[in-house]
Simulated assay, not measured.
Amino acid sequence: FNSGNTSVEEQSLYMATVNICELSHKEVELRCELTGNVAEGYSAGKVQLSQTSIAVRGQEEEIAKVSYAKVIFDIGKNTKETVTADLDYQFYDEDGQVLNLSGIHAEAGQIQATLPVYVTKELKLTVDFKEAPGAQLADMIWAIKPESVVVSGDASVLNDMDSIVLDSFDLLSVTTESTSHSYAILVPDGCENLSGVTRATLEIGYPDKTVADVTTHNIRVENASASRNVELLTQELSVRIFGTAAEMEGITGEDVAVVADLSDYAVASGTYMIPAQVRVGDGKTIGVSGTYQVQVRIPEF
């Protein structure tokens, strides 16, 4: 036999027998057996499985033996945080015996199991205080009410937490003996505030604040052009300072330095009012109120 480029030199006939069996299908419950334990002081929630049933197919007499499927979830010893694992499952009959039936086909891969582990902790309420010269936390009387709250939540979130920061607070804003500020208590996402208190109050005061005006002649410029003689027209300046009575005692104008930076006036000429920085003593304990400037005359090149 020839047909174009194809030729058949020998032919044979074969017979085949095909058995066609009807496959059955059903859904079986997926169960989870836990092993291991949660550490003392912690609690576990409900196991979460990626699916709650498994579809199986096979011959009717085979899948009829399948009562349920099960994964074994080992959470380890003295677990202190949420555990997640990918697990294999097995099929069981109604007597709880493992079935090893090759004719059963399951429509699922590994099962992801998660056991949320919770902890209850008392978290201290704090404020991020911003200190400044003349406004040191050590010089103030303050309290946060309530001091703490009891929070329950995922151990992986709370294990490393000891406090809740309510907000930042600039101590320069404290000008009286007593003031109060209210803040919302925000617990981490997914956690529960068991105390039931939703707001905290910061009470803070500056019981020993002393304010004084001092006059200084200690005025200078810096970063001036070396080729020009800048004339400082402001010869004295009155500066308002503050601090505790002990820190302020003995402070005079000689302890106050006023510096005007001419970096931005390198090519300028004429008379200008230049912003000045004021520093008292070591610059750490005494604060300065207000802003200041000095007048200078810059000659032409």
Results as ranks from 00 to 15, higher is better:
V66P: 06
Y68N: 07
F73Q: 12
V151N: 02
E61Q: 14
L123R: 10
V149W: 12
K77E: 15
I104S: 02
K121Y: 04
E81A: 13
A135I: 00
L137E: 00
K145R: 11
H105M: 11
L87G: 10
I104G: 09
G76L: 04
L158G: 03
S67L: 00
D128W: 01
G76T: 07
D88V: 11
F129N: 06
S67H: 08
Y118F: 15
Q97G: 06
L125K: 04
A135M: 01
L101Q: 11
K65W: 04
A113N: 05
D74S: 13
S148H: 03
N100A: 04
D95C: 03
A69W: 09
V83G: 06
E107P: 02
V71I: 15
A106F: 08
D162S: 14
I141G: 11
D162K: 12
Q110P: 05
A132R: 11
I111D: 02
A108R: 12
A155L: 03
N78Y: 08
A155M: 03
I164Q: 08
I141K: 14
V71G: 10
D139F: 07
I104R: 13
Q136W: 01
A138Q: 14
K121V: 03
A108G: 01
A85D: 15
K65I: 00
V71Y: 04
P116G: 04
E107Q: 07
L123K: 12
K80M: 13
D93T: 03
I72F: 02
K77S: 13
G96W: 11
V149L: 03
I104Q: 06
I75V: 15
M140W: 10
G76E: 12
I63A: 13
S152Q: 14
V150C: 01
P116A: 00
A138H: 01
K130S: 03
A135C: 14
V83Q: 14
K80I: 14
V83S: 00
K130M: 13
K121H: 09
D128G: 15
V149E: 06
D160F: 05
T79Y: 09
D139Y: 12
T79A: 15
T79V: 15
S163K: 13
Q59R: 13
E81W: 06
G96S: 08
G96D: 05
A155H: 04
D128I: 07
N100G: 05
L166D: 00
G134T: 09
K70Y: 00
L123S: 05
A132I: 05
D74W: 09
K65Q: 14
V117W: 10
L87M: 04
N78C: 06
D93M: 02
I72Q: 02
L101W: 10
D160R: 06
S156I: 00
L115K: 09
D154S: 07
D154F: 07
V165S: 04
S67A: 15
K77A: 13
S67R: 01
N78A: 15
T84S: 13
S67T: 00
P146S: 03
V149R: 06
N100V: 05
G58R: 08
Y92V: 01
E131Y: 04
A113M: 12
E122P: 00
G109F: 13
